[in-house]
Design a protein around this nucleic acid. Structure first.
Length: 272
DNA sequence: CCCCAGGCACAGA
DNA sequence: TCTGTGCATGGG
């Protein structure tokens, strides 16, 4: 499947900190595991991406996953024509970013793991968790490398704490176990959170052990596609303080704060 | 060896 | 409600 879009850059998305299972395999080529599927993405041109999957699978999964119906160019245009010089530069720099629609449970567990870890360490831990608790993905594209889906809530809820610890989770092992159990025994219904407003979503998610405001925001944005809310991590906090002297007005970007946050994060973290 | 990482729970004020 | 602190582990 060949996708044409002025705002679809797989390198930028892979390095945007929102997903942890998208990896460079060649120049202009990335692998991605999501929804128990494996695909290879190739950046053919600045506005063309080849996805190695059937049209049926594209329509069913990836069109939605990459949020391809949404017009990011409109936002980029508004920022590059606007008064804010930092966001102007950030939007130009990260104009191929999109907010992915990832699996809520995977986001919950992944961002619990993310606390107090850097991104390479997060990715390593997640891969170990998938190898140990995920099911094997059958796809010839994997090229002989055993590839595993993200674990189901049931598989993690039934794990032993000391086995979880072996995957490098550290003190987060109990957070993972208890959160998975909360999903399985329906103390929380992640898919139902899609329809609630941001305050309600945050209230429910932060009840989970090991889930604070930051992690909840990431689950909300990347797993439930609440693009109106913006996670504030150390990088965004740095932007708000150093660039805006803590006077940034999120209300200017009501409804799309999560997307604005993504341009900020990617620019601050990656540009030299 | 050092410091820090897309934070959190918990204790004490 | 706010601030400080310990936390397991690995990358740089």
């Amino acid at each position: 499947m060949l996708i044409q879009s002025p705002n679809f850059n797989i390198q930028q998305i892979a390095d945007s900190g929102q997903c942890f299972r998208m990896n460079k395999i060649n120049e202009n080529q990335y692998s991605l595991i999501a929804y128990s599927k494996y695909i290879v993405l190739t950046q053919i041109d600045s506005d063309k991406v080849e996805i190695n999957c059937s049209e049926e699978e594209f329509e069913e999964v990836w069109k939605d996953y990459f949020d391809l119906e949404y017009n990011y160019q409109q936002i980029v245009d508004n920022l590059t024509n606007g008064q804010d010089t930092f966001l102007k530069a950030a939007a130009e720099y990260g104009n191929g970013l999109r907010i992915l629609k990832q699996e809520p449970f995977e986001m919950l567990i992944s961002f619990i793991i993310s606390q107090n870890k850097n991104i390479p360490a997060i990715k390593r831990t997640i891969e170990k968790l998938c190898i140990k608790y995920g099911s094997l993905i059958e796809n010839e594209l994997c090229g002989g490398i055993e590839t595993y889906a993200f674990p189901t809530p049931e598989s993690l809820a039934g794990a032993r704490l000391e086995d979880l610890r072996e995957t490098g989770l550290g003190y987060r092992d109990a957070y993972i176990l208890r959160s998975a159990q909360s999903v399985v025994n329906r103390e929380i219904d992640l898919t139902k959170l899609r329809t609630l407003n941001t305050d309600e979503v945050m209230k429910h998610l932060t009840k989970l052990h090991g889930v604070g405001v930051k992690v909840a925001n990431c689950v909300s944005l990347y797993g439930l596609h609440h693009i109106e809310n913006a996670p504030v991590d150390v990088w965004i906090a740095r932007v708000l303080k150093e660039i805006y002297q803590n006077k940034f007005d999120w209300k200017k970007y009501e409804g799309i704060a999560g997307i604005i946050q993504q341009y900020m994060f990617y620019y601050m973290r990656n540009h030299t």
